[in-house]
Design a protein around this nucleic acid. Structure first.
Length: 440
RNA sequence: CGGAGCGUAGCGCAGCCUGGUAGCGCACCAGACUGGGGGUCUGGGGGUCCCGGGUUCAAAUCCCGGCGCUCCGACCA
């Protein structure tokens, strides 16, 4: 993509409503624009990041045995009356009426909808287990939306639902999601720590929140510092095997949100391992048994001909929130620093002097070859001052900047700058290409 | 839902107290110079001053009502 043609409205100054760094940077870097309180448009650069996050989420869900479907945003009130939540959910649920005065709602979540689908289709234990998920926009009419996409009213969420014949099956599903979540967040460069959590209005009694530590987080959390050092991606995972050892390793050290915090246990930790911090909740998993299946009659015939109410769990990831959360975890004074896995473009190619034959030729050549190699590259071909170009690319945070200027052209080199470290190297154009294509 | 604040050009703001031709910086447009960290100069365009009502010869400014947005708290993924 040529920057001269790209829709990338960056801001030099920070809009006054943005208080936290991720919100400021998302506005300044041209990722989002606010539509109304807690509701945002995603501009091309922001949408690219959102899609890349979605992709990681999808890959990990699929690997863990999930099957993707897509449920609607607008749901009928009757389903929610069946579960009893139409009244319970309160003012956070956006209620609307269609032209026939039928009561509808904009879904804040989809337990009822999925339970309805599954109860209609699954009648025998032979068709269990099932693990279904979708990635869809949700609406919760928050009293006080804030922090940009971190607590919006409209937000993109991945929600999975498991259906099992018995408790053991439900726990297996829970463990699969537990591990898939660890991998999902790790792939985005995040240190997400699973913490014992209250189940909230969704109900149930086995629940973990996945929390990344950040000063601007809304949750107060307490955990064993050793958890911060844990790694998941170097552990081979077989989702068909017993995942309990992995889950047990991650749940053995103390980690709890303030709702589940037990000071007596926490204080038994050595002082240097007690970590009390703020965190951002990026995922939440629940086992809730038959809460919905019982209320809504999601029943199968068991092996002995008996009726069995399905065991359920639900598992959410705040996809749009993750964009903000990743920025909170990865930025500096100059702007965003995207982890490679979610970067909107892998490479920013900077032509320091458009119009200079040597620079133009070298840039066009690199641009074509990088694209040919399947690398997403944003080519700054604008006639801006060099400083403006560096500032733009630092702001939008692409992992690698490839700088082509007259100085380098004279000596036959281009400069490769790594956004995260600031490290620069002068290489021949060919060597730079080899390096960038090899990284993939 | 309690408390506080703000709505003036795309963004950041001044002007309001004390009513009298709507300003500044950045951004934008044109030209020239410049060219490795948001460069310089010259010229230029852009405004229902959130909306409605009232007071007044005259309202961005004073008064009343509404709407929107933000912050702190409680609540919540």
């Amino acid at each position: 993509m040529r920057l001269s043609a790209y829709f990338l409205p960056t801001l030099r100054e920070t809009p006054s409503e943005a208080q936290i760094v991720s919100h400021r940077l998302m506005l300044r870097a041209g990722l989002i624009r606010q539509s109304s309180a807690g509701i945002y448009s995603w501009l091309p650069l922001g949408l690219r990041v959102l899609r890349r996050i979605e992709r990681i989420v999808r890959e990990e869900q699929d690997a863990a045995g999930g099957q993707e479907l897509l449920m609607p945003t607008i749901q009928p009130a009757e389903l929610w009356r069946e579960s009893g939540r139409y009244e319970d959910y309160g003012k956070e649920m956006l209620r609307i009426k269609d032209r026939h005065e039928r009561e509808m709602l904009y879904g804040p979540t989809n337990e009822e909808q999925i339970t309805d689908i599954v109860r209609q289709a699954i009648k025998t234990y032979r068709d269990l287990p099932k693990l279904l998920y979708h990635i869809q926009w949700k609406f919760r009419d928050e009293v006080r939306p804030r922090f940009g996409v971190m607590r919006g009213r409209e937000f993109l969420m991945k929600d999975s639902y498991s259906f099992d014949l018995d408790y053991d099956g439900a726990v297996r599903a829970y463990n699969r999601m537990f591990v898939a979540y660890l991998r999902t967040f790790a792939r985005m460069g995040l240190k997400a720590i699973p913490m014992r959590a209250a189940a909230g209005p969704i109900g149930g009694d086995l629940s973990h929140e996945f929390i990344i530590l950040a000063e601007t987080g809304e949750s107060q959390v307490f955990c064993d510092k050793s958890l911060v050092e844990f790694e998941i991606l170097d552990t081979p995972i077989n989702y068909d095997a017993d995942l309990r050892p992995v889950v047990e390793r991650w749940t053995a050290p103390y980690a709890a949100t303030d709702e589940k915090h037990d000071p007596a246990v926490f204080d038994r930790l050595p002082a240097d391992r007690r970590l009390q911090a703020r965190g951002i909740e990026v995922g939440h998993i629940f086992y809730f048994g038959t809460k919905y299946s019982k209320a809504m009659g999601a029943v199968v015939t068991g092996a002995k001909g008996e009726s069995v109410t399905m065991e359920m769990g639900s598992y959410g990831i705040g996809v749009s929130r993750l964009v903000g959360a990743i920025i909170e975890a990865s930025h500096d004074e100059a702007g965003i620093i995207w982890p490679d896995s979610v970067a909107p473009f892998a490479v920013g190619l900077i032509n320091l002097r458009p119009g200079d034959a040597g620079c133009d030729r070298a840039c066009e050549d690199l641009y074509a070859k990088l694209q040919g190699a399947g690398i997403d590259v944003l080519y700054d071909d604008r006639s801006e001052s060099p400083g403006a170009k560096f500032a733009t690319f630092d702001l939008i945070g692409l992992p690698t900047q490839l700088v082509v200027g007259p100085r380098g052209i004279k000596s036959g080199t281009v400069e490769v700058k790594h956004r995260r470290t600031g490290q620069r190297e002068e290489l021949s154009a060919d060597a730079a290409l080899t390096m960038l294509t090899a990284q993939r």
